[in-house]
Design a binder for these strands. Structure first.
Lengths: 348, 348
DNA sequence: ATAAAGAATGAAAACGTTTACACGGGTTGA
DNA sequence: TCAACCCGTGTAAACGTTTTCATTCTTTAT
């Protein structure tokens, strides 16, 4: 129909009213009379008008965009969290811009600048640390920032996480209750907060069962399959190899099983393996993985809820759920076929 | 420092020049004298100025955003494609907005509206079909739209894909060369374009080997693990079960293996399985999967390249690589341990 | 010495909205 | 009858940029 896309002015002209009236008809319908409202509707239909979101946002000085910092979008673990976030956001009229940082501080800084340049109204951190340019100026009046999955100690950010220590405790306890004594924890990067919490839970369970002496912990550079393979190889080479692994991710558990099979071991007969996360594949691996289920979608939903709460200017900003008092989502131990009672009584 | 974030006006005042000069100093440095350029630099540093991207985009009537429609962001297959796209886009100063459509036409329409409302400068379709509101008005002057992975017949969109038929041909030929005769193709949804092309390649290879009679095809509602399990169960229940599966995805291949193991069959001794995609896990499944590798990152890179080419107003818009003459990315047959020579000579 | 050209800058318009304010006309209450 | 009020609408100012055009000053060529 039109050469250029129609603007509010075209609609106004077509309807024989002012642009102010058109705007009001769209956003404050109760302020405009029934008859003009209809005229505007028709004019909009006739011109095929779609509001220019950029102009609107400029005027309102908002962007309608929520920035999501993820360390690696390729990790399927994040997908469902994203999905939960995206759903909540779009219901509230926000878009989600995903920033894949690859743990590169420079990329993090680039994205963090979006907050300053009004390209994003809020930020959700899935990557476990504040981009460095922000760490200095966490002032009041800054756009909302929320941390998910990994709490950021000292940041005072609203946070939603699972209780990693408790989950690790339950996972390990499952193994001790099956009679395992020599249990190894295949852990993530040593300085990672998830690692620290899960190691604590592991240690707690081992202490509880009086097994401090036969516990071992092996740290890895990341949570991937290859890391799990390498760790398991190291551990199984020992004189007194473990009879069970508690792995910090399902990927690592899969790696551990690969390594065990390499050595001709049968899982779970010769060695039990517990994973973490309950990724989609866990139920269909061979053997199906005993693991800790993280309600990922719920994590995302809670995170976006905290953001929206803080974005809503009408309400007084709640100042709760800081990292020392986070929203905690419950996990669940899913028992499948990768764990079994310990048969290998200590030969010593 | 400042109450509100600094604007270009603050910088101008601080530097004792006009806002025009500040803008020029930033974007056309050769037009402004050395001395003022420095004054502006200092003023920017002093005020902590960051340009308001929305205002800039409004003035330039662009959004700096490239919209990506994916059917399901949870599918790890897409992740690396996204990553390739994102990288190329950000190098050219564009952001990537991911629209997870879940194959919901309504969501597709919502996102497609972004093009009209200037919220996105271009669109990349990973979901295999044009959002309905666009199918009617594919006029000249419309923002660039590019299809990846799934060509959209008749759309005349620039397209980058793999040669699905050729890839399926090679995969199937691998099986016939191993001596398999009763080969079943576990295919995706019947109307899906990928399915159609791969089925064609499968049929071609079977015909080539004179095996039309012992070929069978089983369609599924999607490409997931569960679909693979169900299909394999159906096929293995036959009086003359296949000795090999060619699956339309690695997920389905995993499902097929799960089903085979259920029946006490050994892969590859009793039955060979070929997958498609070479997802990360393929190499670490038990057994490691023989599969078709799709260079996913390259697909993404090519797609964004086509987009940027068309976004560059300085060049005459190339009108090539339409869906009937697409950019084709080469695949590769990766032979691992899920396939072996056929031992089960036809008892008939 | 003067015209022409060039270099550096500023004033102001434009991008497409939303909204504070002003205004006119109709209703209400005294 | 007149003041007070409300309802519906229009005018114009913002939001923060980029860029055209005009202006001033300097340089160069004749």
């Amino acid at each position: 129909m039109s050469e250029k896309t129609a603007t509010i002015e075209d609609v106004a002209q077509q309807a024989g009213v002012s642009i102010a009236t058109v705007s009001r008809a769209l956003h404050k319908p109760q302020l405009v009379s029934q008859s003009t409202r209809e005229k505007v509707q028709h004019a909009i239909a006739a011109t095929g008008y779609t509001a220019n979101v950029m102009a609107r946002n400029l005027r309102l000085s908002r962007s309608g965009m929520i920035l999501l910092l993820v360390p690696d979008i390729g990790n399927p673990f994040f997908a469902e969290i994203l999905s939960g976030i995206e759903q909540g956001a779009s219901r509230a009229g926000y878009n989600v811009l995903i920033g894949d940082t690859q743990n590169d501080p420079e990329r993090e800084a680039t994205y963090a600048a979006y907050l300053r340049s009004n390209q994003a109204d809020a930020m959700i951190l899935l990557n476990g640390h504040l981009p460095s340019p922000l760490s200095e100026a966490p002032r009041i009046g800054t756009p909302p920032i929320v941390a998910v999955c990994e709490r950021i100690p000292g940041s005072n950010l609203p946070t939603v996480i699972i209780d990693n220590q408790q989950a690790a405790l339950e996972a390990t306890r499952h193994l001790t209750q099956l009679g395992h004594a020599r249990i190894a924890h295949i852990a993530g990067p040593a300085q990672n907060i998830l690692t620290i919490d899960r190691v604590a839970g592991f240690n707690e369970a081992m202490a509880e069962a009086g097994l401090r002496k036969t516990a071992s912990i092996d740290y890895s550079p990341d949570f991937g399959i290859e890391a799990g393979i390498a760790a398991a190889r190291r551990l199984l080479r020992s004189d007194t190899p473990p009879t069970a692994f508690f792995c910090a991710s399902d990927g690592m558990a899969i790696g551990a099983i690969v390594a065990a099979k390499e050595l001709g071991l049968n899982v779970p007969r010769d060695i039990s393996v517990v994973g973490f996360d309950d990724i989609h594949l866990a139920a269909n691996y061979d053997p199906p993985l005993t693991t800790i289920r993280q309600p990922r979608r719920r994590l995302g939903e809670q995170a976006i809820a905290l953001v929206l709460e803080r974005l809503d200017k009408s309400r007084p900003a709640p100042d709760t759920h800081a990292d020392n008092n986070p929203v905690i989502i419950n996990t669940e131990l899913i028992i499948r076929a990768s764990t079994a009672p310990c048969t290998n009584r200590d030969p010593a």
